[in-house]
């Protein structure tokens, strides 16, 4: 146990944690919204994120950009990658809903069956990138870690005087980007007409359909929104870590789910709080013990939260949000 390392680098570790946490928070939104509306853990959501990271790689490859491109090209490529990842992830999420969940909803199958088809979809998506595409298209697909060109190079922006903390452009983009997307989503759900439909179905599906809300459309909308957020998270992830792999989704998905539960599943602002807290807790834990235990931290946090405050820090409230 190394508390000195934690204390001496507290500012740096906190910043690391917030960066990590922003990505968790964005992925957590997908879990939280689907759960809020359908009372269902979308097991394939982690793979929706994974598809996003591959799309970023695809966009960069098609554009032929690599590290050290001109400023205009960097901005264009990043924005295109953002749009591409959002579309691809939202499309994947929608496809999962259509193929794996809708037929079961019609049959009124118990929740356990939804989880199983979700796991099945998740395996299919993982294997598409790890095996099927490799056979048909060859590299970069396959069971190896793939580097993504760091189109957006890391540059030091400024140093906070006094505590000597260097802020880089990528961190600003990740944190600000994540918070902006969450604000946009929060506004959409709380202010727009479609968002009102989402809240209505979350609150009481039967009454909502009596009031003329099309439940199927709301569910599709929720999958699209959650998928798009996962796409944003995918771009931010590639900016920070410059890699992707066929199975990166699993661990991130589990952490994001933990973040969603930590903040209160079904609660959009809870996802942000939960994500940031989990990110920070994880970085602290891996400094004090070792990085191998970082994954255990998430589960321990999850169990403790569920034991003492099963509704999460901010409570479960997608439906209870004010009208």
């Amino acid at each position: 146990m190394d508390f000195d390392a934690l204390i001496s680098g507290l500012d740096r570790h906190t910043l690391d944690g917030i960066t990590r946490g922003s990505i968790y928070a964005l992925v957590a939104l997908g879990y939280t919204m689907v759960y809020g509306v359908m009372k269902l853990i979308n097991f394939a959501h982690s793979e929706v994120f994974m598809v996003g990271t591959w799309t970023v790689l695809g966009v960069y490859t098609v554009l032929g950009v690599s590290a050290g491109a001109g400023l205009g090209m960097v901005i264009a490529a990043t924005l295109l990658a953002l749009v591409g990842a959002m579309i691809a992830s939202a499309g994947t999420a929608l496809a999962v809903e259509r193929i794996a969940y809708r037929p079961l909803r019609k049959k009124g199958a118990p929740p356990l069956i939804f989880l199983i088809t979700g796991i099945g979809c998740s395996m299919v998506l993982v294997e598409l990138f790890g095996q099927v595409f490799e056979v048909f298209f060859g590299p970069p697909f396959g069971r190896v870690t793939v580097n993504i060109p760091s189109v957006l190079e890391t540059k030091e922006l400024f140093t906070i005087p006094g505590i000597d903390l260097t802020i880089t452009n990528t961190r600003v983009i990740i944190i600000v980007g994540a918070v902006l997307m969450m604000l946009a989503l929060d506004t959409f759900v709380n202010k727009s007409r479609l968002g009102r439909g989402v809240r209505a179905v979350a609150q009481d599906p039967d009454t909502a359909s009596l009031m003329g809300v099309n439940q199927n459309r709301v569910i599709m909308l929720v999958f699209v929104l959650g998928g798009a957020m996962a796409g944003v998270a995918a771009l931010l992830y590639t900016i920070q870590y410059d890699i992707t792999k066929f199975d990166i989704g699993f661990i991130i998905g589990l952490k994001a789910f933990t973040a969603a539960v930590l903040g209160g599943i079904g609660n959009l602002r809870g996802a942000l709080v939960g994500g940031l807290l989990l990110g920070i807790a994880e970085v602290y834990a891996s400094t004090v013990w070792s990085s191998e235990w970082a994954n255990v931290t998430a589960f321990v946090v999850l169990v403790v939260i569920l034991m003492f405050r099963p509704t999460g820090l901010l409570g479960e409230s997608l439906g209870k949000a004010r009208a």
Binding site: I99, I116, T117, G120, Q131
Partner: peptide
């Protein structure tokens, strides 16, 4: 191909 077939089988059989 086993994991892929497994995933497909899960979805198909369950539906």
């Amino acid at each position: 191909w086993r994991p892929f077939a497994f995933g497909v089988a899960l979805v198909v059989v369950m539906i």
